[in-house]
Amino acid sequence: MTVNELSKLMGCTAYGDDEALNKNVDSLYIGDLLSWVMGHAEADQAWLTVQSHINIIAVALLKEVACVVIIEDAEIPQETLDKANEEHLAILSTPLTAYEFVTKFNTVKA
């Protein structure tokens, strides 16, 4: 599915242009320690994290993840959104916890 489809399916608030929202999502990845995510996330995954500072953008771009999903309504600094927009990377925001997100995803995707 695309990032846009994931966002709609999960009721997220989406930030991103057409290029960002049309990227392909293969699976989900959860992690908050950037170095761990650098080592283990795969390209085309939607990355769920509570981290919303600007450093997540570099990690997301270098790993070529599909999008970043900021969970639990964590506040997203404007500089993070601006940088993501500049790099055509979608940021999704959800009130759900990572656990709730994945549970719901597995229920509704079928």
Binding site: M38, A43, H53, N55, L62, E64, E79
Partner: peptide, 29 residues
């Protein structure tokens, strides 16, 4: 706050030089 800037630049250069994407990701990490 600017961490990763140099890594992104190097990734762009290597991409332009035709380095395949799986190698590119490893080098970027």
């Amino acid at each position: 706050t600017t961490a990763g800037k140099i890594s992104s630049k190097i990734k762009d250069i290597l991409k332009q030089l035709g380095v395949p994407s799986d190698k590119l990701r490893k080098i970027s990490v």
